[in-house]
Structure formats: C-alpha cells, structure tokens
Write a protein that binds this DNA or RNA. Structure first.
Length: 565
RNA sequence: UGGCCGGUAGUUCAAUUGGUGGAACGCCAGAUUUUGAUUCUGGAGGUCGUGGGUUCGAUCCCCACCCGGCCAACCA
C-alpha cells in the first residue's frame, strides 16, 4: 500500500517529532539496512473512527516520507467480535482517506501456523507451559501491584507433557476455557504484563477467514509482535496504553527465531476529541440503541460517518498532520477539526442558493408570470468555478431568520420599511407582512428597484445586508439535516462518566421542505456544496435530495446574539 | 498501594537538546467584501506543575513533592 501524493502536500517543511527523529537515527545508524516499514493494524470488530485516522495518517505518512512501505493488516485474532463486513468497511475507509491498496491486504490469521510453530519452540525451550487453571484462578494468582504473584501448580510440567497437552488443545480436544498456554517468565515481575502472560486461549468458534481450522487463538501480545516480525515491520507504532506491553513484545522476539531484524515498538498519544467518544464499544452502543441508523450514519464520529457528512479526506489528513505526534495524553477540540473542514471546503465547494426555513416574499411591482435568469458566480474567490443561472420571479423564498418584525439592535437584515440586496438580484424593500390567525408571519410583501440589477443603486445608496433567496415556482424541495455536537459534555467519559448521560438530544435536527435552487436537483450524490450563508452541505450517498450540513459557516451575527445571552 | 509515561498561552501542541518561550484554533479590534462567509492587518493572553540544588546563567540537568494518564482480561 502507499499513500497518494497529496498526503504530505501543504507541509513543505519536514515535520520533526520523536518518531521521525528515531527513524532518522535508525536510518543513519544503518539499522534494518535502511528499510522503513510500518503497519496499520485494526481489529475488524467495528468501523474505523476519527481517532484511527491519526494512526493511519501517521503510519502511511511515515512510510511515504521515508521511502518505506506500510501494511494494512487486520489483527483478526478474536473470532468472537470480528467479521467480514468490518473488514470491507475498514478497507474502504483507508482507501477513502487517500491510502490506496495497490498492494495486498494482510491478515494476522494468515500467520496462525507460524505462530503455532513458534509456540512449540517456546515449549521446547522450557519457556511456555499449559495451565489447567480457570481464568479467575489465574487472575488471583497473578498478584497485584504491590503483592507478588504465585506460581501455578502446572508451571513445572515437563516439556513432553506440555507439548502433548498443547497439541491436544490445537486438535480441539478441550472445551473453551479449559486450558491456556502461558509464557513462563516471572510471577514476581514488577511489570504485570510479564507475570506469565496467556499466549493461547481455547475458543471453539468459527473464524471469518480460517473457519473451523483453529480451536485455539493467540492473544494480542503473542500475536502482534510476531505479525510485525513476519512482515518485516521495522517501526511498530501504537498508542500510549501499550507502553507496558513493550517489554513483553521484546521478550517474545528475543526468545524465538526471527526472519528479519527485531522490530521495535513506539508509542504515541491516541487522538481524542472533545464532545465525542472514540471507543468502539460506545460507538457500537449508539448503533444498537438506534441513536444512529448504522456505523456510517452522518451523526457518527466514524470515518464512514464523517464521509457521509461531507468531511473531505484532505481536511482530515491536514488535521492529523497539524496536530502531529504527541507523547502525552490529549484531547483536541472538535472545533479545530471543523476549522480544517471549513478551510478545505471553502476552497473546493461550489456555492449554491438554498433556503432552509422558507418565508415567502411577493414582490408586488414585479410582473406576474415573468421569470428572468440571473447570473450567479459559483465561487466568489475562484473564477475557475464559472457561473450559473438561477431563475428569479415575483414570488421568492427567503430565510425566516432574515426577517424580523421587531429587529434587535445591529440587525442588518429585512424588516418592514427596510431595503436589502438579494444576492445576484435586486434591492428589495419590505412593504408589509401577512399573518395567519395565530399571529405567525406567513408572507412578506415587497417592492424591487429595477435600477439595482447590477447589485448597486445608481444613486449610490447603500444597503446593510445581502440575503439569499430562491424563486418559489422553480425551487426544488429537499430534506436538510443539521448537526450539533453528539455529546453536550466536553469530556463525555471523564471521571468514568457514562457518555450516554450527556448525549445531546438536539444533536440532529431534521428540516423538511427546504427550498433549493433548481440546479441542485442535478447535484451528484456525495458532492458537497456551500449553501450561501448557511454552511456546507453534502448530498447524501444513498437518499436523493437529502442533505447533511457538514459544518456551518462562521457566524458573527450568531456569536453576537449569543454573547448578549 | 508498586512500575512506567507525562505536566509549557483559554485549549492543544512546538522550541535544532543550558543562553531572557513559538504556532494553530479560540478570543478582541480594524480593512476589504453582492455570503454578518472568505481574505488581510493588528492586539490581548505564559511565575514553562511546586519547592530546593548544580551553574555566570535552568523550560531544559539533579533531588523531593504535587497533579494527570496507563498497567493486576483466557479483549486489543
């Protein structure tokens, strides 16, 4: 696999951090004969979330920068939770992020045979034994941080007996949980990971790739480092919480015959975001509880979710490059990610007109039945986007927010007696309003000034604001979904809190009957455009005329209102 | 409670490794603007966790303490 060449664009200066320093040091010292090989090793037990993007960009990015390679490898060692659907989704997400699989995809399950062989080697060296204890007993005998562990009564079995028992485990003679294979290290080690860790457990369960071939499955520590070694990985980069596992990682390597030089494990801080959770278990719960329609619902902080929502892959890559690799636990502000999304979308998204909450305006001095085409620029900052024509007529819709019967101070938009500019249209003056029996404003009356067709008045008079609109008869209807932060708590899991307690009931607002300019009926699904003045919107991947607001525009007026309380 | 990792603007990270601390986002103000957007300019904002020590000089080295994270699954 390799990344496309846009990955490192926008980062002209070579980044420097403890990982890159290390790689440069290894390179100049001639370690691994100048090879650099990394890997991204997801377990296929859920969809990738935004936190994984960091690891993906790091591993593939590093390989790219140092002329190395990066393997996409599925750490599929637990048949209880894994499946093919997750494998497919993960491959799709990695590719979408910009890292194409022009090479093969790797699977830990392909190495079960080799791992088994190495396990027998360890037994033969007297460094592994079969333990008949149940899991509670093993746990109790492991001791605690300040109390030593106790040797299992099965710890000193003969090599022959261990070999026989292990082969029978492999042959499927035992029930789940009946026996395990353990490394024989030190039951009084200060690092708990080293107190005779379990290498294999019995699970009489079909595996999505190996079927019923194996009744025993390797545990993480026994599997991971060996997978790295088999693939010739040089720099095995994982998150901080595996720090304690590094000693074990090394121990295994030091006690088996490696096909390549010993890989090294390095830890960096996982990416956490405010107001979101990045735990597969919690994400799975959102799906199970029906809060999300699926792992790829636009409300989800998964890669597939934010893709549906309209986040550009480049924005995510730039975001990851910007925050870099840290060695301390950190939580990034979701606003920072959004600012990268906004920044990217600002340069690539064509502008369109759409009225989310329509209020009809009848322009009384405009001829009935007449429709004229107005030229609108597709991007005010980039002429190459060209122009398009939008229909204008006597009856239009404007945003409900753009009219106030009793305007607060500094409100520049429409009110009775005030003149504003219609974007790409004329100046109009509101002359009156129509209310229903309940006192709701249902329609506005206005007049337009034909002299202002060019966007300004010949007499030089100014207007304070420009509002967007859509011609009523030609408008197309759409459903628009607005999103707010998923969790109201900044740190939803802080102090052991249940994130579900701070789930934002207003995280999703569905607006039916939005009025869009006609050209939007032809917008390809998946495309993202800017609805002028209201934000960036993605045309849903599956449902036509369903739009997700990717992110809003910066809104000075809203900020002003909020500040006033 | 033992081991390991970490503590630098509001926030998250930098600082070529002993020579009076930078960026981004956020915030504030101004300019431009047919999006209250974009763009541009400027500004506020720091007892480098605390206390000692070494040194001409410490964010950096040493010691102690405080705070946060991870580790006692047959999950990864």
């Amino acid at each position: 696999m390799s990344s496309d060449d846009t990955t490192t664009s926008g980062e002209p200066t070579e980044a420097s951090d403890f990982l890159r320093e290390q790689i440069r040091a290894d390179l100049s010292a001639g370690t691994y004969q100048g090879r650099v090989k990394t890997r991204f090793p997801p377990e296929p037990n859920g969809f990738l979330h935004i936190g994984h993007a960091m690891s993906i960009c790091l591993n593939f990015g590093l390989a790219d920068e140092f002329d190395g390679t990066c393997n996409l490898r599925f750490d599929d060692t637990n048949p209880e939770t894994e499946n093919e659907e997750f494998v497919r989704a993960i491959i799709e997400d990695v590719e979408w992020l910009g890292f194409t699989s022009d090479d093969e995809v790797y699977y830990a399950s392909n190495y079960f045979g080799q791992m088994y062989q190495w396990a027998e080697d360890l037994i033969n060296k007297g460094l592994a034994y079969v333990d008949d204890s149940d899991s509670e007993t093993i746990s109790e005998m492991r001791g605690g941080f300040t109390t030593p562990g106790q040797d299992s009564p099965f710890r000193d079995r003969s090599i022959e007996e261990n070999l026989d028992l292990f082969r029978r485990m492999r042959a499927g003679e035992f029930a789940d949980g009946e026996r395990v294979l353990r490394a024989k290290i030190d039951m009084n080690h200060e690092n708990m990971q080293m107190r005779d860790p379990v290498m294999y457990r019995i699970r009489n369960l079909p595996h999505h790739r190996t079927g019923d071939d194996w009744p025993i499955y390797p545990n993480y520590d026994w599997a991971h480092g060996q997978e790295d070694a088999i693939e010739g990985v040089t720099h095995s980069i994982c998150t901080l919480e595996f720090d304690n596992n590094r000693e074990l990682y090394d121990w295994y390597h030091n006690n088996i015959d490696l096909p390549f030089e010993k890989p090294n494990q390095w830890e960096f801080a996982r990416l956490n975001l405010t107001h979101t959770v990045t735990s597969k278990r919690k994400l799975a719960q959102l799906v199970e509880d029906g809060i999300a329609a699926g792992w790829d619902d636009a409300i989800m902080p998964t890669i597939s979710g934010v893709r549906r929502r309209g986040f550009p892959a480049k924005a995510i890559r730039d975001f990851c490059a910007h925050i870099g690799v840290a060695k301390s636990n950190s939580v990034r502000e979701i606003e920072l990610l959004e600012s990268f999304v906004r920044d990217e979308l600002n340069t690539i998204a064509p502008r369109r007109s759409a009225v989310l909450r329509p209020l009809k305006v009848v322009i009384e001095n405009y001829p009935e039945g007449q429709v004229e085409m107005r030229e609108a620029v597709n991007h005010p900052g980039d002429e190459s986007f060209g122009t398009r024509e939008v229909p204008f007529s006597r009856e239009i819709y404007i945003e409900q927010d753009d009219f106030e019967e009793d305007p607060p101070p500094k409100y520049y938009r429409l009110t009775v007696g005030r003149e504003v500019r219609l974007r790409f249209g004329y100046f109009i003056t509101c002359t009156g309003l129509v209310k229903d029996d309940d006192g709701n404003i249902v329609e506005l009356r206005a007049t337009y000034d034909p002299e202002t067709s060019g966007g300004s008045a010949p007499d030089g008079r100014k207007v304070k604001s420009t509002i967007h609109w859509v011609s009523a008869a030609e408008a197309v209807d759409a459903t628009v979904v607005l999103y707010d932060r998923l969790f109201t708590a900044e740190h939803p899991t802080a102090d052991g809190a249940d994130p579900m307690d701070s789930l934002n009931p207003n995280a999703k607002e569905v607006i039916e009957g939005a009025k869009l300019e006609p050209s939007l009926a032809e917008l390809p699904q998946g495309d993202v455009v800017q609805f002028e003045r209201t934000g960036y919107f993605a045309h849903d991947l599956d449902t036509p005329m369903l739009f997700h607001r990717t992110v809003g525009l910066r809104d000075e007026w809203a900020r002003l209102q909020k500040r006033k309380g």
